[in-house]
Design a protein around this nucleic acid. Structure first.
Lengths: 208, 208
DNA sequence: GCACTAAAGTACCAACCAGTCAGTAAACTA
DNA sequence: TAGTTTACTGACTGGTTGGTACTTTAGTGC
């Protein structure tokens, strides 16, 4: 088969998106090469421009799909059945897991912030995705305050940033940390230690 | 003067290094352009290759100079005169300030981690710089434990990573946070709030 | 068997960009 | 003052890269 409709399961658009995700995540938007995406996806370069119109648009599409992936993971945690402390702990651990399970997300965000979030700002889709998470966090905080297990006045956005920082930065910067401190931060043991440190730190911070 | 030895105060090497710092920090190593560094520094492109031999070597030189800058800031804090809690608070606030005062450091590190710390690993100079800081932190922790104000068993490297994460990630990722949460995290008010959150979080974590 | 469409191929371009070449002029040295 | 080193210049090159034009192949539904 030299040309014509392929019989592979995933259609070209999806395969391009998958290959682009890897390429962008590993090399950043500037280091990534369209030809390489074409090669890896097995699609003709023309198809990339047919579906996505430009390299930048492709990057936005990749960002959106990863944000969507992460958001969907955060949705079904059934935190309402748990008491506030347990719910908070679960949310923290789940947030920490995301960076390890979806390392591409972290890398895309690093690249994106080097570019002043130019692509995120262009995507209404992404910007509409995060409020539900903050609402969940707010709900847990309020329940905790009512139960007398959390102190009052903690801003949910601020708390979300703290949890994210403690987990994301560790994973994103483990290369330089490893080089400087001569350790291996991504070993299972170290990762488990970090997760318990984060939980302890946040829960102590929330204590009345 | 068409050619020949220049009489300008700052020599070309320094001007190139300064321009390269800005270019690399703003665009990452892949986005940065050698021609642009030449243009901004006012030096001929050949001078860049004369002094630094390659774009990558120039990047390493930039990294080293920034690491040196940051390290020298951390040296003269005279923390030994303060009680453990005050010393810890000062170290935390100082660490937080660095990311705001030297934003280039953060950006270079982001780019560097996208490349698996390949350049940091190449530089023995950088790798020899960080142990003194950890020793300082270790000293404060030990004094605090002896005084009964800190609990025992906290790893200084782990603590350093936490402090750094809480401050660096906030600054490095404020573009995407701002876009998603519709705030302005770099306003003086928000920055002050963040600094006090970080201090509170760390000091509560260290309580016995 | 015909129209439609997704997919793929070949070939190309203009801009870009890291790195080089060949040479000049001032300053230092013996 | 001849010879060497250091600082500097403008033009150039060869490979790369995002993006385009035009053509061809082959499944699908009618």
């Amino acid at each position: 088969m030299k040309a014509g409709r392929s019989k592979k399961g995933a259609n070209s658009r999806d395969r391009i998106l998958q290959a682009a995700l890897q390429e962008f995540a590993h090399k950043g938007i500037d280091g990534a090469r369209v030809d390489e995406i074409a090669r890896v996806s097995g699609a003709n370069k023309n198809m990339i421009y047919h579906y996505f119109r430009s390299k930048e648009n492709l990057f936005v599409a990749v960002l959106e799909s990863v944000y969507e992936n992460v958001r969907s993971r955060q949705q079904d945690l059934s935190l309402r059945d748990l008491d506030p402390v347990a719910a908070m702990r679960r949310l923290i651990e789940h947030t920490a897991d995301i960076w390890i399970e979806v390392p591409e997300f972290n890398r895309l965000l690093a690249s994106e912030n080097l570019h002043q979030a130019k692509h995120v700002r262009r995507s209404k889709k992404i910007q509409s995705m995060y409020s539900p998470l903050i609402d969940t966090l707010k709900g847990i905080l309020e329940r905790g305050v009512k139960d007398g297990v959390f102190r009052d006045g903690v801003d949910p956005v601020d708390l979300y940033i703290s949890v994210t920082s403690l987990s994301a930065h560790y994973v994103a910067h483990h290369f330089t940390f490893d080089a400087i401190f001569k350790t291996n931060l991504m070993s299972p043991k170290k990762i488990a230690q970090r997760k318990s440190t984060i939980s302890a730190m946040i829960l102590r911070y929330l204590q009345p």
